[in-house]
Design a protein around this nucleic acid. Structure first.
Lengths: 201, 201
DNA sequence: AAGTAAGGTTACGCGCGAGTAGGTAGACTG
DNA sequence: CAGTCTACCTACTCGCGCGTAACCTTACTT
């Protein structure tokens, strides 16, 4: 039943999805949906919760403690792309639909995203500590911003992956790791990019 | 009048925005809106067109020909973040609202995004050519994927920037350039990241 | 066989908002 | 001053879709 809801939500979007269609696709009648899961918003929230839980599970299950940050990031990224490739509809609901609309659900999704960003940030911080980088080189929020950028790159590559079914999740993961880790490794060693001289205007 | 529409659309989202509210905020009555710009979809499209045009203009106006790829990318990125920081509502409409819903507008926005991605890809390609990288090292689509990742990182940093008004666009640009150019410079020199040995499962 | 509870269904109420019909006020024409 | 044209508004229609009231059916009890 949640499967039917996820399908319809992913195809139509939250507003355009009608409870009638969801009920029909689930093979039951509308009042039953209301009986089990309350309002439309509740139903959508339930979908989000389930998909978010699955995604979270897919990622955390491969990230064993004690591994090197690089290895953990690789595994997590890999698990992420693998999951998305297999749960296109779920991802579509989570990412495309649940972002933006006024308040009710965005919080749920934003929370999960923040968790991912913080996990990535923690990995970066560990990697930095391992390399013995001094604090002043990289401010506190700096790491969070970097993690944000990486996650954004991942999201964008996800769209790419879904639009190019011939690409494998592994290759996509490797691309992201290349961008991320190679860029980081330079920064970690103190090699930073500086804007060219002169005012840009 | 488009200003009013952009305001309301950005606050409420496309579906939740009512023509009454837009008309009221514009200081005119509803039939006038229909007289000038047809349906609600047409109005939204007009908003998107204008904002997209402005964004495009802001970026292309600083990217003079003949500069080094690095310099061009820096200028473009800088212009992008600067624009977004000053046109929050416009960005919100373009990015948060117009992505995803079924077809009618997503095409308009997707087109612009694709243009940006291709521009970035072209810069990367030029940079590679300048460094004398051989084709086989990086396949054709590879560059596009990379550009996609960079653009995604930029989008994500945009959200970050909007959530942290104390951050300056320049700093954000520098962060992105660090991630991008430093990562690229490694890859350009043939240093690529390889997954650790052993099956990931 | 009558009572009743569980697990469904059909068919409706009702609000909301896109789009419109028809009217009004002023400016311009002969 | 009658005609009419422009520019705009008030007040409506109408469809859509969420949520629900009332009804039906099957199985189980006494």
């Amino acid at each position: 039943m949640l499967d039917a809801a996820v399908q319809v939500f992913s195809r139509r979007g939250y507003h355009a999805a009608s409870m009638d269609e969801i009920a029909e696709r689930a093979g039951i009648s509308k009042p039953l949906v209301y009986l089990y899961l309350g309002s439309k918003a509740d139903l959508f929230t339930a979908c989000i919760r389930r998909e978010a839980g699955r995604l979270r599970e897919a990622i955390t299950s491969v990230a064993e403690d004690g591994l090197a940050p690089q290895e953990q990031l690789w595994r997590g990224v890999n698990a992420f792309f693998g999951f998305v490739a297999q749960h296109r509809e779920g991802w579509s609901v989570l990412y495309r639909q649940a972002r933006g609309q006024g308040e009710p659900f965005s919080g749920e999704v934003a929370k999960m995203r923040r968790m991912i960003v913080e996990t990535v940030a923690a990995l970066i911080a560990r990697a930095m500590a391992a390399e013995g980088v001094r604090k002043p080189a990289v401010e506190g929020d700096e790491v969070l911003a970097l993690a944000n950028a990486l996650v954004g790159a991942g999201e964008s590559l996800t769209e790419w992956l879904l639009d190019h079914p011939e690409e494998s999740p592994e290759v996509t993961s490797a691309r992201l790791m290349n961008l991320a880790w190679m860029g980081l490794s330079n920064v970690l060693r103190g090699k930073v990019w500086r804007p060219p001289a002169g005012p840009s205007r």
